[in-house]
Design a protein around this nucleic acid. Structure first.
Ligand SMILES: NC(=O)c1ccc[n+]([C@@H]2O[C@H](COP(=O)([O-])OP(=O)(O)OC[C@H]3O[C@@H](n4cnc5c(N)ncnc54)[C@H](O)[C@@H]3O)[C@@H](O)[C@H]2O)c1
Ligand SMILES: NC(=O)c1ccc[n+]([C@@H]2O[C@H](COP(=O)([O-])OP(=O)(O)OC[C@H]3O[C@@H](n4cnc5c(N)ncnc54)[C@H](O)[C@@H]3O)[C@@H](O)[C@H]2O)c1
Lengths: 230, 230
DNA sequence: AACCGCTTGTGAACGCCTGAACAAAGTCGC
DNA sequence: GCGACTTTGTTCAGGCGTTCACAAGCGGTT
């Protein structure tokens, strides 16, 4: 048997692996047992060769001439992305966006559970969202300690995002997803990912304007699922 | 005078320009008149040299030895990103996430206005979100035509996202922001940007797991505002 | 048992983006 | 008016990521 060698995996690849896993979940219901790279790539919106390279980071996963075993690949991807164990997350700022996230059922199927909801507004504290009670932000450290949450999601106003971030980090959270439109500063060893919806719209507006203007199109990047497919 | 030469701007740069613009907006209130690249870069969470390179795509914007004029740079960035004119957007799928977006005031300040809200649920149709009435999805084409919307945002369940997308494109929308976890297929000339929150969490989980495990760290990418700052 | 077609896995080239170092240029102080 | 300092704009090299193209391997068939 070949030993599993944990090669170095590019972060861009990791993001796509998550997409492949989701596509596979939808494909498993079809009664099929195998998929080809071309089929998977089409469903995921990527290049077939790139998909194969992505999967090759996990070592050989497929069978030549046949394709990839759907169930086998699901297991492999699931393990690579952190296993099936439930990952506790805390969410700070239960406003419009925070409520939508807390109430979303799509995360649980991936193993993410919002076990701690925190807000500073007394009117929000005490209510329940998605079956989880909202607790006062003062209890942040206690909640993180109790739940052993490793991921923190910030949906507070921008002004307080950095302070919330600092408290999360101090409490032991080492992965943060930030929706507030500020660049968070964190110590080394802490990962931050930012979701900036205004920027997304602004980029679309730029592309729109540029399209109407001069032919010199923007250098297309590989991020996202840009057009081109017929 | 030097003619404005619309150089080719990398898409990654465009995204950062939007961030700079927002930072400048917050900085303009401070009464300052000029900023250095180092200061701006720090506030935006990027490298100073990279920031200067980004700005240089717009031609010389600063004054050597002094820095960048805040008001001047704001104008330049605003123009580069599509001008100040209000951009009409339509939003399809007024559920939890869609409502949060429609009700968010942060987009209007950037010129984005949700002038059309569409949903298929009779209980949602007729209600108002953010002062805009929700209309039946059957009127999608009419709404796009009336409002001349150039940007469409999809927050429907994944199963119907592609059909909604097709209708938006047929109606004339050429820029789409997709929150549904599917890869949309669009004709050439249409831009799609995807926001996939499950993937964001999954990547964080992966990094988390890898950090606890072996030293071979993932090849860090430039996307997002990853850690490292002191 | 050998052949054939299909699909994976990988090697290499290309292009883009990033980070650092350097020269140009303008301003402030004397 | 001149010098020195500050900060920009640019050039250079390096790293990643993507893409193409091909060899290797497996299953099915004759
Ligand atoms: N569509 C959107 O809602 C949207 C879009 C883009 C960006 N954002 C960003 O996401 C964040 C949240 O947006 P929102 O629309 O949900 O705002 P919101 O005002 O509806 O919610 C913010 C919540 O944070 C809570 N809060 C404030 N200070 C807090 C603190 N110190 N500790 C804990 N909780 C605190 C408030 O009580 C409120 O419930 C903002 O930074 C916003 O810029 C939102
Ligand atoms: N936190 C979140 O809410 C979250 C997180 C990640 C991804 N998403 C994705 O965003 C999308 C929306 O999520 P949500 O939580 O708001 O779901 P939701 O069920 O609350 O809202 C979906 C809305 O779309 C409407 N709809 C259904 N079919 C339609 C059609 N054919 N035309 C127009 N409208 C239609 C429904 O009536 C409903 O109002 C989903 O694809 C979901 O996977 C949501």
């Amino acid at each position: 048997m070949s030993q599993s060698r944990p090669r170095i995996v590019p972060e861009a690849t990791v993001a796509r692996l998550a997409v492949y896993l989701r596509v596979l979940a939808g494909l498993a219901d079809g009664g099929r047992s195998h998929v080809s790279s071309g089929e998977l790539a089409s469903a995921a919106g990527v290049n077939p060769a790139g998909l194969r390279k992505d999967l090759s980071y996990l070592g050989p996963c497929g069978v030549r001439g046949v394709g990839y075993s759907i169930s086998g690949l699901r297991e492999r991807l699931t393990e690579a992305l952190g296993g099936e164990r439930s990952r506790p997350c805390v969410l700070v700022g239960i406003g419009r966006l925070g409520s939508a996230l807390a109430d979303y059922t799509g995360f649980a199927s991936r193993g993410f559970q919002f076990v701690g909801l925190l807000d500073s507004d007394p009117r929000t504290v005490g209510t329940e969202v998605g079956g989880v009670p909202v607790r006062p932000v003062e209890e942040l450290e206690a909640v993180v300690a109790d739940t052993q949450a490793s991921i923190g999601v910030i949906t507070t106003p921008a002004e307080v995002a950095q302070s919330v971030c600092d408290r999360l980090v101090t409490a032991g959270v080492r992965s943060i997803l930030n929706f507030a439109p500020v660049a968070l500063t964190v110590p080394a060893g802490v990962d931050v990912r930012k979701v900036d919806l205004s920027v997304e719209l602004q980029v679309l507006a730029f592309l729109d304007q540029q399209r109407d203007g001069s032919p010199p199109v923007v250098a297309s990047m590989r991020t996202g699922v840009s057009g081109g497919a017929r």
